[in-house]
Design a protein around this nucleic acid. Sequence first.
DNA 1: GCGACAG
DNA 2: ATCTTGTCGC
Length: 216
Amino acid sequence: MMEEVTLEFFKRIQELISRSVAVEHLEVDSSTILGALDVSYSNGVAFCGAVVWRLSEEVPLKKVVQSAPVNYPYVPGLLYVREGPIMFSTVRSLDPKPSVLLIDGHGLAHPRRAGLASMVGVLADVPTIGVAKHILFGDVVRHNERELIFVDDEPVGIVCTGDDGRTFYASIGHRVDMTTIIDLLEISGWRYPPHLSEAHSLARSAAVSAERSERA
DNA sequence: GCGACAG
DNA sequence: ATCTTGTCGC
């Protein structure tokens, strides 16, 4: 558990960074370079898996894994403290630089409007979209045929249910708008982004192989 | 005070 | 997230 003063400190940073979040339209087409990030853990070490794709292709352009010791516990609302640093480092190592990043977590659908996706997006100056498996904050409202997530009476995300019945939550991270998110989900057939599934298995397998070499 | 709570 | 146990499908 973190000290109260430490929690307040990290929350204050979040509030300031949230003011720098830009909501603007980003065009996505077949030439878009899409990146996906996820983190796995093993024995106190975090492994960040990153996969880069050309939206028009079915095979990733590049796969990268970075690892670093875990320095902070998971605290709801402060995931960025735990996963932000290694994601930030991994994003900077990406070449080519993705035109937009999918990040495992929320963006503006957050009590301080600055989830992991927004924090990484602003700090790395890269467009980001947060994609989480569970809701953290915001009001889900039916709007025509879709379920939108509202924060401060503003639509910041959308609730989706893939063909497999699994629900996920996509929200604005940085430098994208709802149209960008909807366009991207449309292209993916409204199912959980396979790019993130790939990043997850990449990070997980890195963690598992690290466990094996440690036991040996 | 109690329940909720990304990963 | 991770760990553990049990069931299902290829």
